[in-house]
Design a protein around this nucleic acid. Sequence first.
RNA 1: GCGGAUAUGGUGUAAUUGGUAGCCACGACAGACUUAGGAUCUGUUGCCUCACGGCGUGGGGGUUCGAGUCCCUUUAUCCGCACCA
Length: 918
Amino acid sequence: MEYNFKEIEARWQQRWRDDKTYRVAVDASRPKFYVLDMFPYPSGAGLHVGHPLGYIASDIYSRYKRLKGFNVLHPMGYDAFGLPAEQYAIQTGQHPAVTTEKNIARYREQLDKIGFSFDWEREVRTCEPEYYKWTQWAFLEMFDHWYDLSAEHARPISELRAHLAEQGTEGLHAAETQPLTLTAAEWCAMSEQEQEQVLQNYRLAFRADTMVNWCPKLGTVLANDEVKDGLSVRGGFPVEQKRMKQWLLRVTAYAERMLNGLDKLEWSDSLKEIQRNWIGRSEGAQLFFEVVGSEQPLEIFTTRPDTIYGVTFMVIAPEHEQLAALTTPEQREAVEQYVIETKKRSERERIAETKRVSGVFTGSYAVNPFSGRQIPIYASDYVLSGYGTGAIMAVPAHDSRDWAFARHFGLEIIPVVEGGNIEEASYDAKEGKLINSDQLNGLDVKEAIRTMFEEVEKRGIGRRQVNYRLRDAIFSRQRYWGEPFPVYYKDEVAYPLSKEQLPLELPPIADFGPTAEGEPPLARVETWHTAEGYPFELSTMPGFAGSSAYYLRYMDPSNREALVSREANEYWRQVDLYVGGIEHATGHLMYSRFWNMFLYDLGYVCEQEPFRKLVNQGMIQGRSNFVYRIVGTNKFVSLGLKDQYETQEIHVDVNIVKNDQLDTEAFRRWMPDFANAEFILEDGKYICGWAIEKMSKSMFNVVNPDHIVEHYGADTLRMYEMFLGPLEQSKPWDTNGIDGVHKFLKRLWRLFFDRDGKFLVSDEAATEQEMRTLHKTIKKVTEDIEHFSFNTSIAAFMICLNELGDCSKRAVLEPLVVLLAPFAPHITEELWAQLGHTTSVCDATYPVAEERFLTLSSFEYPVSINGKLRFKRAYDLNLDPKAIEADVLAQPEALKWTESKQPKKVIIVKGKIINIVI
RNA sequence: GCGGAUAUGGUGUAAUUGGUAGCCACGACAGACUUAGGAUCUGUUGCCUCACGGCGUGGGGGUUCGAGUCCCUUUAUCCGCACCA
C-alpha cells in the first residue's frame, strides 16, 4: 500500500470539520495559549506559496502547545475593507462586498487544503456590521476621552469639562494639538460651538485642520506609514502635502508608553528599533531667544544646549507663524518669493534635493541669551514646521546642515567643542571638551548639556522638553469601502451617535468614484443623514481601523453586548504568539498597541500590550526560469550552450520546469507562439536559467500552493516550507528539493505498511540504540520548536529515520507520530488511527525525553591546562573514563589537579587532551 | 548620513553558542532492481593533489591552547529612518 496523501488528507480534513476538532472554549481548568496570525486581506489573486509560511509556523506551534496540554486559541479571519476591492469596483462597477465575498471563499478553500487547526467558528470579517460596530464603538470612546499626561491615563471628556469650568487650563497637563491657555471665566463664556473647538484640542479622536498626505490618484488622504518616498504604498502614486480638515487619532499621547512598553516585549530587536525610530523620542530644551525690536521672542528646540555659544544664526521654517512678523520691509519681497518657491516643490523634490541649500534672510536679528550677541534670523525649508517649534538655533560648527547653510551664505562658524576640522566639515559627535564657551569651558559635552539644562531653567529662558517624531494618525479616508464614522454634523460641529445607534451601516451604492465636486462617494447617498436630517460624515475609516482590535474580538466573537466580555478577556488576556510580516512595524503594530492601551485605560481589557511575543516570518521571493530563443527563430537553446548563439532571454512558467529542466512538450502547449518550438538540448535535456525576483504573474514565477498540495500533499508542503530555511529569513521559493521531504513521509509510511499493505508494526521491545535515537530526536525537536527553528527540527526527523533503519516497533513509532503531528497533521492522524487509537492525535500526550537515554558517561576531573583552569561544556564524548585518566596522566606537565572544581568531560582533539569541562 | 541585519560547498542550509566546519536535504556522479523511470535502494560528493599532505566559513588584522562563533577594521547585499535640530 502506497502513501496515498490525497485520500488521507481529504478524509481527515472532513473528519476535523465533522468532529469540530479545533473548536476551543474558555476552560479555567487548563492553561491558555493564544497563537495569532496576521489576518489576510483577501485579494483577487489568491494565495501563493509565500502566504502560508507564517500560518504553517504558527499552526505547528499551536498544535505543539495543544499537545503540551494548553488550551490553544488559534483563530483566523479577514481584513476585508480596503483599497484594492474599491479600485476594482471603480473599474468594473462590481460592488466591493461581492468581490470580497468571492475572494474570501477562494482564500478559505486554499487555506482548508493545507490543514490548519483554526477554530473557524471564531472567524471575523472587518467589513461586517456586527464586527465594525465595535470599531465604531472604540472610535466613540476615543472621541469621548482625553489624555492626562500627569496621570498617564485616558480620562472622560466630562472630567475635562469640569476642570475647564473650574480652573480653565490652569494645572491641566494634557495631550493637545496646540498649547492653549484659558481661564475658567473664558471657558464658561464660550458658546457650545466654541467650547467644542476647545475640546477638539484634547479629544483622542478629533478633527483638525492639518497638513495631510493627499494622494490625488487615489482621491484620499493617507497616514504617514502609508506613504513611502513621496509615493503611496498602495499603488505607488504621487502624494502631495495639502491642508485639510480631517479626523485624527491622538496616538502621540501614548508615545512615551509605547516606547517604554517595548522593553517588556519579546519582539525582535530590529522590529523594536523600527518602532523606537518611528516614535523618535529626543530629549532637549525649549529655549526663547529675544528678537531685536520685538515683544515676541522666538521659541526653538535643541538637543544641544551645550553649543549655545556657537550659535551664529537662527533658522525658521517657511511655514512658521512668526515669519511675516520677523520679515523687515526691505526683505519682504525676497522672503515672499522664497515661500512661494518652497510651496511649489513637492514632497518628492524636497526628499530628492536634500543636499540643496536654500534660504532667505528675514532682516531681523535675535539675541543669544548667553553671549548677548546679535544674530541674523533666516528662513529655510531645511527646518520643518512640523517638528519641535519649527525654529532652530544654528550651530554651524557642530551640525552638518547648519554648516552647509553657513558656508552657502558666508556666515560665521565658531567651534565650541574640541575635535574635528571645521574648515572641512562640522564636528557633530557628542564628545569632547567645551571651548569658547565662558563658564562651560573645559566641561565634557555630556556635563555641559546637563549644566545648561539647569542654567536655562534657572534663568527662566526655557525648559527641558521631550519631542517625538511620531505624528497623530490621520483617520479619515475619502473612500467608500471602509467603516462609516458614527458622527453627524450640526452647524459644522461634529456630534457622536449614541452607542445604541451602532452599527452605523455602510449604505449600498452603485458608483464608487468621487463626485464631480471631488467629494467622497458617500456624498451620492441621499439618505446619508440622521432622522432629523443632519448629515453624516462622508469619509470612512482607514484600513488600520478594523485591524487594530481584531485579536480581542476573536476572544469572544459573537458577543452582542461588548467587544469582548470580561470573562473571556481575563482568560485569554493577550496574544502569546503573533506571527506576521515586518511590513506592519510602523502601521498596524503601532496602532494596535495604541488602541489596546486606550482600552486598557478604560478598563475594557486587562493587558496593556496586545502581543507578548512576535515572530516576523521572512518574505518568500519568486525564482524565475528562463529559456533562450535564438534571435529571429523559434529555436530554443539550453542554458549551457546559449553562449554559442545570439539569444533572447524569455521568462518561462516555472510550473512547467522541474529542477531547472524544461518540460518541452508542456512548453509547446504553453503558448500558441511556441507550438512549433525546436530545442537544442544538452545531454538530452533542456536546462533553464534562473533568477530571484519578486513573485508576480508577469514573471511567470508564481507558485500556487494548490498545485503543490495536488502533487505532493499538504503535509509535504507544510514540511517543505519549514525546511526551506530559518523562518525569519527571506528566501526565494524553490520547488527543487521538495522531493526530500516527500521521500521522508513515504519512508515513514513504509515503516507501517509494506508494498502489499501489510501492517508491519510490532510490539517488540526497542533496543537501547533505538531508544537513544528516539529520545535524542524528542529532545532536539522539542527544543527547536520552542525556538521556532523548524528547519532544524525537520532535519532531526530525517536523521532519526536514517538511524532507525527499518525499525517498525510501536515503542518507537508511537511517540514519533505524536512528535511529528504538528508538522504533518494528516499523515500522523492516519498513522495514529492505524496504531489503534480512536481519538485524534491532537489530544495525544506529548512525549518526554528521558535523561537516561540522553547522557553518556560523565567524568569528574579537576584540571588546569597551561596553568589555567578551563571550564567549558561538551557532549557525547563516548570514551572510557579509564582511558581518559591515562591520557591525562600522560601529560603531567600540562595538568594540575585541584579538588574544588569537578569537571565533567574531557575534550580530546587528535589524541590530545585540549580541555576538561565541568 | 544614522540605525539594524546578513555573508559558510554547485544549491537551500547546519554547527552542542569558543571545542575535530559542512549535519539534513537538493543537485551531480557511480551502482543495484527494472521494458522503462521524474519510482525504489546502495555508495561517492568542500577545494587542490595520483598520493602523502595542504587549503578552506566575504577580505585584512587581533585575542585564545583552540575562532564560522569574541574584538578591531574593511567590502558587498538587504531592510528601516532620513534636512527630526
